[in-house]
């Protein structure tokens, strides 16, 4: 029962990584797109692609939080009372990011847009770093069962740093890959090459950091390393394969299947973490079973997850399809005046 809810929770984590992650990554590219003139075109594409979906994407975070605190309240309290610094920063980052993005779209004067845009972009990098470091803290067992762990070393440590950097990089890679596809849909060869180059770079750096990270984990989180190299090995290998396939597709400027390949690579890495962690919620000291709520609550959560599958998924598909179709119907739209 607890395992089932954990699986549903983890599906939410993966969805947040591949959907919300791409949003964060788009913020990363927005940040380094250069001045108002040079960055105009990439930023326009980012706005276009993000606009319709960003709110829905970030709802996955709410889903994860509510599943976690209702299903595994002990673990949630232990996390928040230990990792309140990165979580607090992430929460503020989410406010600034959402507000910055929304207001930039709703304002038209360049100086205003620049301020809102900078806020949006900076917090888009800070927030995934914090989430990545939280994941690192959980994976390396730095959150004690009863909470109130060390507020500093719990998230400023090698594994958390690796988690944070990987999160930022993976987000950037995902976003660049998605934006490459979006540029192809808009038949914009310049932007296509722009984001393709960036996707290749981000993908390559992510790969290198991942390999370096393996050695780091061996020293800092031996259990995670052991599980990753045994039980989760197939997932890790598949992730690597997807990463390579993605790079090959990008090199060939083939956009068919690119989004799925990029998303699969990230989803596989995250699942690798989940599988390595099983059956523990925190390090090796709090199991899913011990952290779980009474059964009746878990049943409600299963119901919620099933309802989400029945109601939310078709609506999401509808949303994405309407957006895609409308874009395809209007290939040559005039520039925004």
């Amino acid at each position: 029962m607890a395992d089932l809810v954990a699986v549903f929770l983890f599906v939410g984590v993966i969805a947040y990584c591949v959907l919300g992650g791409a949003d964060f990554g788009a913020g990363f590219w927005d940040l380094i797109a250069g001045g108002a003139g040079r960055g105009r075109e990439p930023r326009r594409l980012i706005d276009d692609s993000l606009g319709p979906v960003w709110e829905a994407n970030h709802t996955w975070l709410i889903y994860c939080l509510v599943m976690l605190w209702s299903g595994f309240p002990t673990a949630f309290a232990a996390m928040t009372s230990t990792l309140y610094l990165p979580l607090g920063i992430a929460a503020l980052g989410i406010v600034l990011r959402g507000a910055g993005f929304a207001f930039r779209k709703a304002s038209i004067r360049t100086p205003e847009q620049r301020v809102y845009g900078a806020v949006f972009a900076l917090s888009s990098v800070l927030t995934p770093y914090c989430f990545g470091s939280v994941a690192g803290a959980l994976a390396s067992g730095r959150v004690p069962t009863h909470g109130n762990g060390n507020a500093v070393t719990s998230w400023l440590n090698p594994t958390s740093a690796l988690g944070g950097v990987l999160a930022v990089l993976a987000c950037a890679y995902l976003a660049a890959a998605y934006l490459t596809v979006a540029a192809r849909q808009q038949a914009d060869p310049h932007l296509l090459r722009y984001f393709r180059d960036r996707a290749v770079a981000a993908g390559a750096v992510t790969g290198v950091v991942s390999i370096a990270g393996v050695f780091l984990l061996r020293a800092d989180a031996p259990r995670l390393f052991h599980q990753l190299s045994h039980r989760a090995l197939p997932l890790a290998l598949l992730a690597a394969l997807c990463g390579l396939l993605g790079l090959a597709l990008l090199r060939a400027e083939r956009t068919r299947g690119l989004r799925a390949t990029a998303a699969a690579a990230v989803a596989l890495i995250v699942s690798g973490w989940g599988v390595s962690q099983y059956p523990y919620m925190l390090g090796t000291h709090l199991s899913l079973q011990d952290a779980a709520s009474p059964d009746a609550t878990l049943w409600v959560l299963v119901g919620v997850a099933c309802a989400a599958g029945v109601v939310i998924l078709p609506s999401l598909v509808l949303l994405f399809r309407v957006m895609d179709r409308a874009e395809a119907a209007e290939p040559a739209a005039p520039e925004t005046p």
Binding site: D48, G51, A102, K105, A106, E327, E330, P334, T336
Partner: peptide, 11 residues
């Protein structure tokens, strides 16, 4: 607004 794509307004 924060939802529709920019080109919507543009067109």
């Amino acid at each position: 607004v924060p939802y529709g794509p920019e080109r919507f307004a543009g067109t």
